[in-house]
């Protein structure tokens, strides 16, 4: 992939949001989601059609990088490849939510913001 291509992606929203373009944006500090053109339902990760109405008309949207902590868990006994003792949470972004790794000691209801990307496996957001 060329440098030019990724710069273009940083300035605009990809027409089609998929795992590749979602990941690419995340590495640039942006959280992209989708809005259903027909019913308006929003999601924080890409799907090929809307679960609310079934429409395939997906519009890529820029999601806020601040949200509130909706729920959390500290994983002590970890899957392979991870060292236990970390926190995973669900972040409420207003119109949708996303699962993220957490840094710091935020409680449910606290305001947290996108602070980076965890790349043990494929990239996922880190909120703090």
């Amino acid at each position: 992939m060329s440098e030019t291509h990724s710069n273009e992606a940083a300035e605009s929203l990809p027409e089609q949001l998929n795992h590749r373009t979602w990941t690419q944006a995340l590495r640039e500090g942006r959280l992209l989601g989708q809005r259903c053109r027909d019913c308006g339902a929003e999601t924080a990760t890409p799907s090929a059609a809307c679960n609310a109405c079934g429409s395939r008309e997906r519009v890529t949207i820029e999601l806020p990088t601040t949200g509130t902590l909706y729920t959390e868990t500290t994983v002590a006994v970890a899957p392979q490849g991870f060292d236990g003792g970390y926190r995973v949470g669900v972040v409420d972004l207003g119109s949708t939510r996303v699962m993220a790794r957490l840094e710091g000691d935020s409680d449910i209801g606290d305001s947290i913001e996108l602070a980076g990307v965890l790349e043990v496996d494929s990239p996922v957001p880190v909120f703090e």
Partner: peptide, 22 residues
């Protein structure tokens, strides 16, 4: 979810931990 959940390091006790904490 292989792309949007597993890479956070979530375990299955953790999944139900999220639901129960809420």
């Amino acid at each position: 979810h292989r792309q949007y959940e597993q890479p956070t390091g979530i375990s299955f006790p953790g999944v139900f931990g999220l639901l129960t904490t809420r």
